[in-house]
């Protein structure tokens, strides 16, 4: 069993009177793909923002690679890559320009940034469109560039916040293969998604969040086994059983 690479302890975060995250604790082992599932407003994105040091928790702490996000944020930032839910890109610039810029922001030299940028664009199947403007790309291509940017700096821990929203099956499949390839190379990944079948396919363990709290956490197989035969029950069944069927929007 691998050692824990991330340890989140009793995280709390409120916005005005609303408790977005309310006592979340979990661990992620090295080389693990850990899924964070939950309906809209469950607190997944707030949790990722705290883990990635851009939002300070009201209470609790997270240790990543031995460093505290509260006391050693800069060291933590050197270990992580973030692929946000939004397309956090400069759409007026080319794909390569975006990767080079964020590479420089991560402290890379010009040459190092270029080498990595070209390698990552190749990884996501966009080496032919390296100089194309992002605003001319399809939704799937933009998502892949978003992922490629997160890989700049070869992070040890990657946060992927719904990286496959609104894209075609081909692009989604490309992203799955990329993520599996990264895990095989030793990367640790925290993955949030609304698509249960992709969590079932990719994640070693999943945590289901609702109302700012983790209400279930185990391997997909074990979670399914809790409500029936794992061969006949889907992760979506588990999810709906845990979070209910009422609309959240």
């Amino acid at each position: 069993m691998s050692a824990n690479y991330l340890v989140a302890q009793d995280l709390h975060k409120s916005f005005n009177e609303h408790k977005a995250v309310n006592g979340v604790s979990f661990t992620i082992r090295k080389r693990e793909i850990f899924g964070l599932l939950g309906p809209n407003g469950a607190g997944k994105t707030t949790t990722i923002r705290m883990l990635s040091t851009v939002l300070e928790p009201d209470q609790g702490d997270v240790i990543i690679g031995g460093y505290s996000i509260k006391r050693e944020a800069e060291e933590v930032r050197n270990l992580i890559g973030v692929c946000p839910q939004e397309l956090a890109l400069y759409v007026e610039l080319g794909a390569l320009d975006n990767l080079l810029f964020f590479g420089r922001m991560a402290g890379m030299s010009s040459q190092e940034a270029r080498e990595q940028a070209l390698a990552h664009l190749k990884l996501v199947g966009l080496e032919e469109r390296a100089k194309g403007r992002i605003d001319k790309f399809s939704g799937g291509m933009k998502r892949r560039v978003n992922l490629a940017v997160a890989l700049m700096g070869h992070p040890e821990l990657l946060f992927l916040d719904e990286p496959t929203v609104g894209i075609d099956p081909q692009s989604r499949n490309n992203i799955y293969e990329t993520i599996e390839g990264l895990r095989d190379k030793g990367m640790t990944i925290l993955y949030t998604t609304h698509y249960m079948e992709e969590a079932d396919r990719l994640c070693d363990r999943v945590a289901i969040m609702d109302g700012g709290q983790i209400i279930a956490m185990d391997t997909p197989h074990e979670l399914k086994a809790q409500i029936g035969s794992p061969d006949r029950v889907t992760l979506e069944d588990v999810f709906l059983k845990q979070t209910g069927r009422s609309l959240r929007d």
Binding site: R49, S52, T53, V54, E74, R77, N78, I80, G81, V82, P84, E86, L87, A88, L89, Y90, F102, M105, A106, G107, V149, M152, G153
Partner: peptide, 14 residues
């Protein structure tokens, strides 16, 4: 700020 590029920079040592 809205498209999170500022946060992305903040999460990458800036």
């Amino acid at each position: 700020r809205q498209n999170h590029t500022l946060e992305r920079m903040l999460a990458s040592s800036v």
